[in-house]
Every structure is written in structure tokens, then in C-alpha cells.
């Protein structure tokens, strides 16, 4: 997974990053900065724009040479093809999207349910070799998926988890639990243990104290952590392509990849499917962006 704790935390100095321009440029950004940013944005965003354009072009325009940037006819046919099969009924792609929703959602929920209490325990209790344990937990993430996928494939075949959604959910949860523990431990550390102590003297058990008084303070952190876990599970490709084969189980990334190959490639369909695939991640990250920032800057909250 590409997102590390450091990246998660890196939104904090965002305010500082803009400041040199303000300091040197007087008002606004310097012309050089604007030019560079424009060029950079164009280079970075061009593939995205091209993908969106292709998804709404008619096939004739998709293959036109020279390429048409503006003067093409807009069609929604490709989007229809993503969801509706050529005859009638649901397409295999729409089934794949549904699988992705189920697998990403369930694995994130599982990782959160397992990881948050574990993070709380690692934060609150004295235990032997705590640092070593935490390092060991993180070390399960050091191995690239391609390396472990073969042994997991063999194990899954033995226990009948191959080509099943449950199998994918478990492996994604296994990958997300260490991340959840590490990220959430930071958030739990920020919540003073005295709230729980006070609650226990009020007459609550330790678990009730956690549930009533600590957990609500952790929600922004949990939201931030869950979004990262969700994005990992949603985007994951290697395990998905090795461990699943049937259309009824396959998630979106291998299903979209499967559209490419063969003698002709329906680029319009590939582009439309990709847009549909990218959209939930963007929307979700946008919706929780406040929580992301709140979660990431929890340490600054007045105590």
C-alpha cells in the first residue's frame, strides 16, 4: 500500500508550504511559480482528462487521427455499457463493481473492528517487548504482495478460500490491520488516559470507559484510518487477479484490466469503467477531508 503513516501526517505542514511565496512574492504567487504549477498540473491531469474525454466520445472519434480534443459528439453509451449487458440485465463490470464495494467495505470494517481495540491496548497497557511486537506487526507490511501471493494462493486452495469474496476480504483485512493499529495507536496516545481512569472511578468497567469516553474522541482518527484502508482495498490488484477467476467474484481492478487484451480493445468502455472506478475514492476522500485534517491534527486539540 502506498500510503504510509508519514504521508498521512504530512498534511499538517501544508500551511507552511504556501508561505515562502507569500513571503517573497509580496501579494499572490510569482509568475514563475504560476507557470511551473500550470505546466505540472497539465502534465499530471492530462491522462485524467483524456480518460474522461474518451469515456464520452463515440467510438469513431476515439480512433480518429488526428485526435479530436473538442469537436467530438458526446455520448453516454460507454457508461451504459459499464452497467448494462449488451443484451439485457447486468453487465459483468457492474458485478465487479459490486464485488469491490463488498470486499473493500467488509475488509475495512473488519480491520477497523480488530485494529482499533488493539491500538488502544498497545497505547494503554504496559506489556513485555511492546516495541518489538509493534515492529513485528508492521513488518508484515514490508513484503510486497507479489512475493506472498504464491504461498497464499496455495494455502487458500487448501482451505477452499480461492476464488471467493471471503478470501479477498480476509487478506485485505490482514493487510489493513497492521496499518490500522499503527495509525490508531498515534490517535489513542493523544487522548489522555485519565478520562478512562476517571470513568472507572465513576463506576464503569475499563471497556465501558473506553466505549463511552475514549471512542467518541477517536472517531475522526478512525474515519481517517478507515479511508486509507478502504482506498487500499478498493485499489488492490495483485491479490485480486491471482486469487479470483470467476466473474461473480472478481473485483473491479482485474475486471477493468481484463478489458484490455484480445484483438480489439473498446477504449471507450475502458475509460468509462475507469472513471466509475476512480469516482468513489475521490468522493469519499472529499467527504471526509475535514475528518482527515481533524484526525491528522488531533494532537493540536486543546486538552
Amino acid at each position: 500500500m502506498a500510503v504510509s503513516v508519514d504521508e498521512a501526517v504530512s498534511t499538517r505542514p501544508a500551511r507552511d508550504r504556501g508561505s515562502p511565496a507569500r513571503r517573497f512574492g509580496g501579494r499572490g504567487r510569482s509568475a514563475l511559480e504560476v507557470t511551473l504549477l500550470t505546466v505540472l498540473a497539465a502534465v499530471m491531469l492530462f491522462p485524467v482528462l483524456w480518460m474522461i474525454e474518451t469515456s464520452i466520445k463515440e467510438n469513431r472519434d476515439v480512433y480518429a487521427i488526428p485526435a479530436k480534443f473538442f469537436d467530438f459528439k458526446v455520448t453516454m453509451d460507454h457508461y451504459k455499457d459499464v452497467f448494462v449487458a449488451s443484451g439485457s440485465g447486468r453487465s459483468t463490470l457492474s458485478a465487479a463493481f459490486l464485488n469491490s464495494v463488498v470486499v473493500a467495505g467488509a475488509s475495512t470494517a473488519l480491520a477497523t473492528v480488530l485494529g482499533v481495540p488493539a491500538a488502544w491496548a498497545y497505547s494503554r497497557f504496559a506489556m513485555k517487548a511492546k516495541k518489538d511486537q509493534l515492529f513485528f506487526i508492521l513488518s508484515t507490511r514490508f513484503m510486497p504482495p507479489v512475493v506472498v501471493v504464491i504461498p497464499i494462493f496455495l494455502m487458500y486452495r487448501q482451505v477452499g478460500l480461492i476464488d471467493s469474496k471471503l478470501g479477498l476480504i480476509l487478506i485485505y483485512a490482514a493487510f489493513n490491520v497492521p496499518f490500522t493499529i499503527w495509525m490508531m495507536k498515534g490517535f489513542v496516545d493523544e487522548v489522555p488516559a485519565e478520562y478512562e481512569d476517571a470513568a472507572m472511578l465513576d463506576g464503569y468497567t475499563r471497556l465501558q470507559a473506553f466505549w463511552r469516553y475514549t471512542l467518541p474522541l477517536l472517531l475522526p482518527g478512525i474515519a481517517a484510518t478507515a479511508v486509507f484502508a478502504l482506498i487500499f482495498s478498493w485499489n488492490e490488484f495483485v491479490f485480486a487477479i491471482f486469487l479470483t477467476s470467476s466473474d461473480s467474484v472478481r473485483t473491479a481492478p482485474p475486471a477493468i484490466a481484463g478489458l484490455i487484451g484480445g484483438t480489439t480493445v473498446d477504449w471507450g468502455l475502458v475509460a468509462a469503467a475507469s472513471v466509475v472506478f476512480a469516482l468513489p475514492v475521490l468522493v469519499f476522500a472529499y467527504l471526509v477531508r475535514k475528518h482527515l485534517v481533524a484526525g491528522v491534527t488531533l494532537g493540536a486539540v486543546r486538552r
Partner: peptide, 9 residues
Amino acid sequence: FQNYALYPR
């Protein structure tokens, strides 16, 4: 408690 530990929310 020394720092009061009042529930913040």
C-alpha cells in the same frame, strides 16, 4: 485528578 480529567465533549 491533578489535571481534573473532565470529559471534554
